[in-house]
Design a protein around this nucleic acid. Structure first.
Length: 585
RNA sequence: CGAGGUGUAGCGCAGUUUGGCUAGCGCGUCUGCUUUGGGAGCAGAAGGUCGGUGGUUCAAAUCCACUCACCUCGACCA
């Protein structure tokens, strides 16, 4: 490709619309342009990278027996109604009507569609297991798109679905997929952490998120350096406090205090001049329609996933002011455990260790101080219902966990029969009985990989692509394009590299060398070959983007030497992929 | 949806507080000449319904009202 003909409008300055590094660099390199909020045009350089990522995914998915298909983005309402997700997806789904008024949705994920394929086309256990995948545009009407391509409303995703006749088969495919995922991300230049996560509206049991550590990430994960335990914030459990409970006063020394309009922890901290950790925060929820109170220390966050799991309920919603009034007898903002005997009150394990705490009095503008658990109140149960925080201890091995920001690149689930049951997707098993499929599903954010790779590999001058996904593997340029000898030599090398299967760009533009160097660094060609004045001594210059030093090579052997370096770089991408250490389940 | 912010040339910005005459600057673009190892110099040129609508005024980028788009933080998130 001649750079003079390439639509790659590079910019010297950061665009105002971009905040995170990958977004800025994609704009500056001319890979990406915004069309609407969370919706982007991919210009040639951007698409080249995407295609390379897609092909790596194809290779690894095919290697574990995946079969590529293509399902439509435009999907009929009826299928989503069978699983109940027409409702569950809510405002996140883009919806439209055709000219006859039939309702359709733009696909956010394709469990329903693929399950429909399976129930129509797969009849016997002899055809199982089968794994189908597609690389396709997904639509999600995000409340707040951000980070450029990092969280868009339209994005490319690889989604795979597997069908099995028993759980052993599902487990096996899950493990294979786990390894394939590690390899895919590694080949794109990123080492990932697999963490346990909440399955969310997709449903199912076991699931892992593949996270790459990055400051620009939106997720918080907890990792144990000791045993490898890792979990998303929603699912991060930790070691409960043990040891002796603090001594309790024989008789209550609690005292009611007047706190006019002081209804939040922040206001209480200011009003009473006491730290947030001295307060007992009481939250009232409707759990499957029944009111319950949950208590956590004032400086902690309640974890709704943990609470929902502990209570074994499906729905959990914050109670309204009226519901709080009828449950506690007091106003919103002044709830507490005292006087709640016989009602459902669950406290975080940490609350039991609190001494002389402050809590709401279930009465407008009133709190209690010097409150002590056991002496002043009892609860239905002490369970772990708060978010993990910095300094918490690994539940498996007792070492301190690290807190990291990260980007979710992939998520794999063991779905079980959730969709096959609701959609009556059956096959004939070996015992002659009709059974519903056991399913797994496996997603990768293709466009997000591109953003994450840039976040992981860049410097002040631009992107430092791994050769596997670079828009071009190599660029060749004459220093002075007006110099016939330089130009002819550069062209010859360009042609020869192309013949040998290198994805090479030829910067034939009539610009000053400094300009072309800056552009090359920005775009991040892994290998740069410069034909300049050393040509008179039979020498060229080769420089790798990730190295500081230039190498001088002989004109006569230049192509062989360049090929050797490129092949070395290509092989390197597999080194990390081959370091896979095994699936935890 | 809550809170804050931005919209002026392809990009980055000034001008808006305190209304005023032909709306500016840098980068980029086009022409010509000179240059050529880290985003060149000189000379010339093109490019704007100042996000939109309505209002106030002799006069609006500037003041008022409404509206749209986008960004950041939060809520949300296969």
């Amino acid at each position: 490709m001649k750079v003079s003909k390439l639509l790659a409008p590079t910019m010297k300055e950061d665009p105002q619309e971009a905040e995170i590094i990958s977004h800025k660099l994609m704009m500056r390199t001319g890979m990406l342009r915004r069309l609407a909020a969370g919706v982007y045009n991919y210009l040639p350089l951007g698409l080249r990278v995407i295609k390379k990522v897609e092909n790596i995914i194809r290779e690894e998915m095919d290697a574990i027996g995946g079969q590529e298909i293509l399902m439509p983005a435009l999907t009929p309402k009826e299928l989503w109604e069978e699983s109940g997700r027409w409702q569950v997806m809510g405002d996140n789904m883009f919806r439209l009507k055709d000219r006859w008024g039939r309702e359709m949705g733009l696909g956010m994920t394709h469990e329903e569609i693929v399950t429909d394929i399976a129930r129509k086309e797969v009849r016997s256990y002899r055809e199982l297991p089968v794994m189908l995948y597609q690389i396709q545009t997904k639509f999600r009407d995000e409340p707040r798109p951000r980070g450029g391509i990092m969280r868009g409303r339209e994005f490319i995703m690889k989604d795979a679905y597997s069908f099995h006749h028993n759980t052993e088969s599902l487990d096996e495919t899950y493990r294979e997929c786990f390894q394939a995922y590690w390899r895919i991300f590694a080949r794109c230049g990123m080492a990932t952490e697999a963490v346990e996560a909440d399955p969310g509206p997709i449903g199912g049991t076991d699931n892992h998120e593949f996270m790459v550590i990055a400051d620009a990430g939106e997720d918080t994960i907890f990792l144990c350096s000791g045993c490898g335990y890792g979990a998303n914030r929603e699912m991060a459990y930790f070691m409960d406090p043990s040891g002796e409970l603090p001594a309790r006063p024989e008789t209550s020394k609690k005292e009611k205090i007047h706190t006019p309009n002081v209804s939040t922890i922040d206001k209480l901290v200011e009003f009473l001049g006491v730290e947030a950790e001295k307060f007992i925060k009481a939250l009232v929820y409707m759990a499957d329609g029944k009111p319950i109170m949950a208590l956590v220390r004032g400086d902690r966050e309640l974890n709704e996933v943990k609470l929902r799991r502990a209570l074994k309920v499906k729905s959990l919603e914050m109670a309204t002011a009226e519901q709080i009034l009828s449950f506690t007898g007091g106003d919103l903002g002044f709830s507490g455990p005292i006087g709640m005997e016989g009602k459902a009150v669950y406290a975080d394990t940490e609350v039991r260790y609190m001494v002389d705490a402050v809590c709401g009095a279930n009465e407008k503008d009133m709190h209690f101080k010097d409150v002590n658990p056991d002496t002043d109140f009892n609860v239905t149960g002490y369970i772990q219902i708060r978010d993990a925080a910095d300094g918490d201890i690994c539940p498996k091995c007792g070492k301190m966990m690290d807190v990291k920001r990260s980007v979710e690149l992939g998520h794999i689930f063991k779905l079980g029969r959730k969709y096959s049951d609701s959609m009556k997707a059956t096959f004939d098993d070996e015992d002659g009985k009709e059974k519903t499929f056991i399913m797994g599903c496996y997603g990768i954010g293709v466009t997000r990989i591109v953003a994450a790779a840039i976040e992981a590999r860049h410097d002040k001058d631009g992107i430092i692509w791994p050769i596997s996904i670079a828009p071009f593997e190599c660029v060749v340029m004459p220093v002075i394009s007006g110099d016939d000898k330089q130009r002819e030599t550069a062209e010859k090398i360009y042609d020869e590299l192309r013949k040998r299967g290198v994805d090479v760009a030829y910067d034939d533009r009539d610009h000053r060398p400094g300009f072309k160097f800056k552009d090359a660094d920005l775009i991040g060609y892994p290998v740069r070959v410069v034909v300049g004045k050393d040509l008179d001594n039979g020498k060229l210059e080769m420089k790798l983007r990730h190295e500081k030093e230039k190498r001088m090579i002989n004109v006569d052997t230049a192509v062989d030497e360049i090929m050797a370096v490129i092949n070395e770089l290509r092989a390197k991408d597999f080194e990390l992929a081959d370091k896979f250490e095994g699936c935890p389940c």
